[in-house]
Design a protein around this nucleic acid. Structure first.
Lengths: 231, 231, 231, 231
DNA sequence: TATGAATGAGTGTTCATTCAT
DNA sequence: GATGAATGAACACTCATTCAT
């Protein structure tokens, strides 16, 4: 923990302020004046605790990663049941935990700064991203062993399971301010749990029924969109 | 008239150079010296074609958006078949088209700069992101009408369908340089097509079989991972 | 005439354009783009006739001085009469000639740039300013010799004679755009001719009369200002 | 608290330095490096106290105007006497006050920059130039009421009274560095006071005498003039 | 320890000058 | 000769970093 210079509260306040500015503006556009202001101190005081702007950024990133890392660890200790029973609540929890730990904003920051700070991207990857994928992958593997889940690369299944939530979070984070199509994350988690478990498809018989229904004269275009859309 | 040709080509050359630097460093960290250097011109020459750095950025963004916008439009005119038949190839095509048009890098840039340039984020949202989601949503709705796809919010289904690919692309883009877990996008597309259509779950009978199998002494931890993983 | 590069019309057009821009904006704020535009040529063409911006400025200044120099010479050959008879028309002519030759604008430019181009200021001084003063000084000396004009430094008399006109011109040039107090130069010339010849003062008897008049009840403040003012 | 003192003094130091550079070089040719250097600070320090170069210029101009404005106000409270008694000392005082307040240099700067900063020219006009003219105009009007001064537009009389001094100041300011004919301002003020009060002309009898005198061969006054001319 | 005034290297932008056509 | 695209040195302005208090 090289980046933690002092034992008292100051560094933590600075780091909190730094996270908020860095996630908001990005590294390059962040002014240390702004960080100091949000931390309630003078700009020069930053240099009592950190050597450079980069130092502050790294400390902020590490701190931000930590809480997410802890959260992943906590999720890991969940009880052992079938995937079908567990997945919906797991996805809901992922969303809650992610929001509690500012995961979307920090993930976005990692995406933005990963070229300038590849070592930080690696830490996030190793400590957070990979761990979440590993957690899901392990669940899938266990379910495969139990015969609950079909054959297939469990790591790709992990993408199938978590990808939509990630996409939803990024959508909110990036377009949330103006898009009316931003998905409701909880609804997404619940519907996706079902979707990924049982698929989009109806059994053939239902399809036949639906075909009959369709031939009875209902317009095939956009009948349910309006009803189901969250616009 | 070698120069005349150059004069016409200059803005495009600059825009190309700009896209490469901006996507690499982000707006704030991009030095116009670097852009000029990559375009093979002097810094002052940039100002013959653009008024400000912001101008260059906007031109670069618009140009980058355009090719993706065109690609989405092209994908839209696909033939009319069942979702089951169409989805795998559609996802494969999405990946190809995305890569051809530097979609991941540009998407990443949009994510990074959306706070500083909300208008650009909106354009990307309206012209690219929303359109892709709309395209998928429409397919789903039509399939629902045909009785092919189950009830549910088709817009959330669109996230279930595209989210994993997006996550995979971002994963490559962000950690690709060092992660050994980066998913193979084509494999992901194919497996995810099946997954999202039919679900992860095996029929109950298969589960019973698998349970039997499992109780026969095989270690439940990571048996197939090594086989299926792309490590 | 080092500054005249070519014999054809081009240089003259450039010089004319240059005078107009330089007098308008000053040396530093003048853009050669603007000069070229007003001359109806491309910027690069300027360099076929002149080596540097300074060169153009010097050529423009010399040309502008020349016409004024010629005008002073012409005024010099005026007929020989008494100062009283000659002064009014002389001042009127000075004003006409000055305006015809853009004297106020050029004088203003000389004032503005005299520190940056002291050699030009010296030329203007020697060729124009001093000559005008010498012309007047000589008239005064001659009048003194004739006993027409009282004792005193004739060079200072020259300031007494020409200063008000100069001040009026500068006033117009500098505040003319917005001041409602800008003097009418012809009226100034005529009234000043009388003033400087015979003085402001009334004979003592007139003063006594006026005092009587005043005691008859007229308000002492601003009675004639409104009537006589040129506002 | 040496610094505290400095901090308070800084803006004034900067403004002083700025006045000196701006009056010397003009706005466009002034380099902020030079201003900083003369103020004994680094370039960046300027921006702790002012936002832009224009800001610094305006502050300098306002400050320079202020002292002249105050000086005009002070002159206004002069005692009430006849114009004949008052004018010589008034003109002498005007010259002293003008020099003390760098009036010539600042007036020159106003002339130079009035096109780029018409609002400043207006302020100078309203606060300084007009006020001086008004002060003189009022004196003249009062003298006219008393019967001391002849009929005529008192505002034009104000030009007749002040113009030579102004011309003399500008002459010094513009050609002072090299002209050997630069008028001595105090001598000019005194001689002009007499001239403008009583006129250049001698009474007819004196003229007759002078003619006689002249014919006797003696030079009546400074026939050195021709010798002193700088033609 | 804390401050915030001061610094100066670095960046975006301008424009006189050059030069291939 | 004439053009105007290209250049690059120079300047206004910013901001991470220093340091006297």
């Amino acid at each position: 923990m090289r980046w933690q210079r002092r034992k008292d509260a100051r560094p933590a306040e600075i780091v909190d302020a730094a996270i908020s500015v860095f996630t908001e503006k990005g590294y390059a556009a962040t002014r240390l004046d702004e960080v100091a202001k949000r931390a309630g101190i003078a700009k020069g005081t930053l240099y009592l605790y950190f050597d450079t702007k980069e130092d502050i950024f790294r400390a902020a990133a590490h701190h931000a990663f930590e809480s997410n890392l802890d959260a992943v660890g906590a999720a890991d200790s969940a009880p052992w049941t079938s995937l079908r029973e567990r997945l919906p609540e797991l996805l809901l929890r992922l969303i809650d935990v992610a929001n509690e730990n500012r995961f979307p904003a920090i993930f976005r920051m990692v995406i933005s700064e990963s070229r300038l700070f590849p070592d930080l991207a690696r830490i996030w990857h190793d400590d957070v991203a990979s761990r979440i994928l590993d957690l899901i992958t392990t669940l899938v593997v266990q379910a495969q062993i139990r015969g609950e889940v079909r054959d297939g690369d469990p790591r790709l299944f992990a993408f199938s399971i978590t990808g939509p939530l990630l996409a939803g979070m990024l959508f909110r984070e990036t377009y949330g301010a103006f898009s009316s199509h931003t998905p409701e994350l909880q609804a997404l988690a619940l519907q996706h749990a079902t979707t990924v478990l049982d698929g989009l498809m109806l059994p053939a018989q239902a399809q036949a029924d639906a075909s009959t229904f369709k031939s009875s004269g209902v317009h095939p275009d956009e009948p349910r969109i309006t009803g189901a859309s969250n616009i």
